[in-house]
């Protein structure tokens, strides 16, 4: 475990906590895409199938449980919580994410490290995570303005991906058995998706204006 990977996990955890805090404190999920949250819950559920079979470390096991529990909690809040669900922008969150799920699953059947249930679902979760943010970015563009907590949520998510890429570069040069090409390539694609959001976020911060995404 290197510092880049640990920092990446922490920023990932912070991004989820920001979302939970925003929903809990404001009892509102305006500006948050339920579809992105559902995709993330699916990512964690399909990636951590090995939760009870392969024990890597206490840290890994605890973090996996935290990620699964928090992502399901967010989805539950947005779907079931009587107050929160009223503020969900159903007609803005129209990204057809079922096609994305299907495409990732087909890709995982074709491109995986080993053709076993666990490996196919792992590859599926890696591809799905790369595109899971799309409904959220589309919703932000649709709603035009980005409230600062949601903006920070996406910012921390981007930071987590960026730190993971640095972690892979570091591991590539320091370890002889480092082959996670599926995660690396998919991670690069995912970070690229954030790049344009970062650009507009930086512009809004620099010009001290409200973050506006071009429709």
């Amino acid at each position: 475990m290197n510092i880049f990977r640990f920092a990446g996990d922490m920023t990932h955890l912070i991004s989820i906590l920001i979302l939970l805090l925003k929903i809990y404190a404001t009892k509102s999920c305006a500006g948050i895409s339920l579809k992105t949250q559902e995709l993330y819950a699916l990512v964690f559920l399909t990636r951590y199938l090995d939760l009870f079979t392969d024990y890597v470390s206490l840290y890994n096991t605890v973090m996996k449980i935290v990620f699964i529990a928090s992502s399901l909690a967010i989805v539950w809040c947005m779907r079931r919580h009587p107050l929160v669900r009223r503020s969900y922008d159903k007609d803005l969150d129209t990204f057809r994410h079922q096609y994305v799920v299907l495409a990732c699953f087909v890709l995982a059947l074709l491109l995986n490290e080993k053709f076993t249930i666990q490996e196919v679902f792992w590859a599926f979760s890696i591809y799905l995570e790369a595109v899971a943010i799309l409904p959220q970015l589309v919703l932000l563009q649709r709603s035009g303005n980005v409230d600062n907590l949601t903006g920070q949520y996406v910012l921390f998510l981007g930071a987590y991906r960026g730190l993971y890429i640095i972690n892979w570069i570091y591991r590539y040069f320091t370890e002889d058995h480092f082959t996670r090409w599926i995660a690396c390539v998919s991670g690069l694609v995912q970070t690229g998706l954030y790049a344009d959001f970062f650009y507009y976020y930086y512009l809004s911060w620099k010009t001290n204006t409200k973050l506006k995404l071009p429709a």
Partner: peptide
Amino acid sequence: KTTKGVKDEL
């Protein structure tokens, strides 16, 4: 040392 293919990241 992680052997090839062991998923030791999140």
